[in-house]
Design a protein around this nucleic acid. Structure first.
Lengths: 227, 227
DNA sequence: AATTGTTAGATTGGATCCAATCGACAGGCA
DNA sequence: TGCCTGTCGATTGGATCCAATCTAACAATT
């Protein structure tokens, strides 16, 4: 873990106002990207060393991550990167299936040609991309582009947070997810261009359901295979 | 603020494992209940004195509240209790309108007679209650009773969090909200008893829309009256 | 052999201390 | 008069220090 984290620390050091912000953002990125595996205990002293700060900003950052459900805190036993269970995945899908259509409904009327062009471009990039991690990020940006004009900052932030968590789940359990659902992506974008809210929401729901069932099937086969 | 907060501090002191937990829970309760008004700056030294701890647990708690969007943090200027604007209220309604039906859908199949009886009892208590703060809490417990069997802990926690925030908005802007929508509450409960998911969700939506429009109209009249 | 009590080390929770930054106010200058 | 600038008090950000608690290994007893 230290190795992968160190790179992140170096690259993103000097664009934060406080050490706590720096640690929080970098650590979150590391957890979401999988650079730190689920279940890893986060030793404060160790983190302080790799970030080259004292334990205090580490502790504040860990508290924020706890509130975002990215780490578990146990008194006197420290923080651990949250595990990924089937329940977590289903929980996350239920939340996204609620939030994303809502964001989309509010956003569609305010989407501009610029937004559509950006989304189009992201789809093209996804087609060419092979690295799964990078594909996940492009996928996230495509979706968020369509939600971004909702004009409700908290709704958007929550949506982005849970989309990122979904990415993390995928990365760990379906590392070689070949199909991002590009057909559905294109139909979704087309519906948005037509300002057809109902068709867009329906397409998004199909998108979610397909992904959820794939994840569910994966867990079933895995647990069925070993238990 | 200190006066109202001091009572909370006294009453709820010794049932927490760490000081940070104690501060976080108490402070959140104080913000949500309105004991600390929106816009109030939260001086760390002052809070440390009223809680009789050092500044460190205060800071950790404030970070958690920041992640829950209950306080704003500005580097070197400290934490402030978030304001309540029309945008915040609409944002919150959009989130609840997304999350609560989802929670209800998952919960209805698993609700038991005990749950229905509890909900019924809460409705009766609401009828007799006159204190607006207490009414808000009963309302919250009624709704959460119906969502509680969803079996998705994160979805439930998010829902509760935003329901509590909605309560806070109401308390500040519609202090004398006489009508909690008991008719809709009863219809909602009835639909749940019948396991009629679609009717329950439709009723809940009406409930949300009515409340959202009341809040919206309030802001319109207030800002129209003064601006 | 298994279970329980004990003790040492590691690690966290909390307190205290110092440095950096912000805001207000006073005084100089055009 | 109005604006800029520099200093000072207040307050936060971060570091270091101490106390409380947990874990694990080992010893003693049954």
């Amino acid at each position: 873990m230290t190795a992968a984290l160190s790179e992140l620390v170096q690259s993103a050091a000097p664009r934060f106002r406080t050490a706590t912000e720096f640690v929080e953002a970098t650590l979150r990125e590391a957890i979401l990207s999988g650079a730190i595996a689920p279940g890893t205990p986060l030793r404060q002293e160790e983190l302080a060393a790799t970030f080259k700060v004292s334990r205090m900003p580490i502790r504040e950052a860990l508290r924020q991550l706890e509130a975002q459900a990215l780490v578990d805190f146990e008194p006197h036993r420290g923080a651990v990167v949250v595990q990924i269970t089937l329940l977590d995945a289903m929980d996350n899908y239920a939340i996204r299936a609620a939030l994303e259509p809502q964001a989309l409904r509010h956003s569609i009327p305010h989407l501009s040609e610029t937004d559509f062009d950006l989304a189009e471009e992201l789809l093209a990039e996804i087609d060419q991309e092979t690295d799964p991690g990078r594909m996940g990020e492009l996928n996230r940006r495509f979706h968020m582009t369509l939600y971004a004009q909702a004009g409700l900052p908290r709704l958007i932030a929550l949506t982005e947070q849970h989309l990122a968590t979904a990415d993390r789940h995928l990365r760990f359990h379906l590392a070689a997810v070949g199909d991002m659902g590009q057909d559905e992506h294109r139909e979704l974008l087309s519906a948005c261009r037509d300002r057809d809210v109902e068709r867009a929401v329906a397409t998004l729901s199909r998108h979610h359901n397909r992904a959820r069932e794939a994840m569910s099937a994966y867990f079933a086969s895995r647990d069925g295979g070993k238990a």
